[in-house]
Design a protein around this nucleic acid. Sequence first.
DNA 1: CTCTATGCAAAAACTTTGCAGGGAT
DNA 2: ATCCCTGCAAAGTTTTTGCATAGAG
Lengths: 133, 133
Amino acid sequence: MEKSVHYADLLKQKGLKSTPQRMAMLRIMETKGHADIDEIYQEIKKDFVSISLATVYKNINTLLDEGIIQEIKVPQKKSKFEIAKYKHSHFVCERCGEVYDVQRPKKLNIELPEGFEPREASVMVVGVCKRCH
Amino acid sequence: MEKSVHYADLLKQKGLKSTPQRMAMLRIMETKGHADIDEIYQEIKKDFVSISLATVYKNINTLLDEGIIQEIKVPQKKSKFEIAKYKHSHFVCERCGEVYDVQRPKKLNIELPEGFEPREASVMVVGVCKRCH
DNA sequence: CTCTATGCAAAAACTTTGCAGGGAT
DNA sequence: ATCCCTGCAAAGTTTTTGCATAGAG
């Protein structure tokens, strides 16, 4: 399946236009896996020299609103964004700051007090990644 | 054990002065359990009418640096701060935004690729709390 | 008495908004 | 042709910094 078509359809489904800038942002997130605002901006400027940071922010927000991407709040670091995909957990390297997807625990044994209704859980593992090891 | 003494000692250990403002901030976090910057600022202004928001930020940062408090990055919400305490997990209510401490899973079955060294993990459960249910 | 912490003001960093022109459908 | 999207500039929000003074040890 060709990715650009894939994203174009996805955007159309949500009633969003597939502008070159938007497509580029999605491609950047797909390629890097996880990127923060500034990484996306620096990267997209290579292709769209005059793109505005405001456009990056606006697109991040519309893509978040439509659930096409997700925000990952990383301890002590800036938020990263990723293409929304099937449930998974994250590993963040405390040396280089890189975020990795990891398969999430099959079962999470957590005791909640009476009356608390869980809907979902997110797990973030902090440690040292392969490259920094 | 009286709390004010407790915190005074803790600050002294770290070479920090126990000023009334700092003590008040610690007391607020202890009482509320989890508070964001603005909650702390609004609360402390009741006792210290002329306190500066800059002082709140500076103290949050020094307390974080010394590991006396911790930041909790909450999905879609502003960060909350809490007194550092023994390992636990968090539950955040998607209705009211309140954060609760919950006991953390005894064992986290998570498969990491070769070469990845975990140091710690944090679990955040999202759902509906007792009061909002 | 010494040196850190506070308060204030200004600066820096980050994010959103309004609007006119451009481009996707 | 319509209406959303972009780029730019300005405004808004959040956080940090510099400096003079106050106050804790």
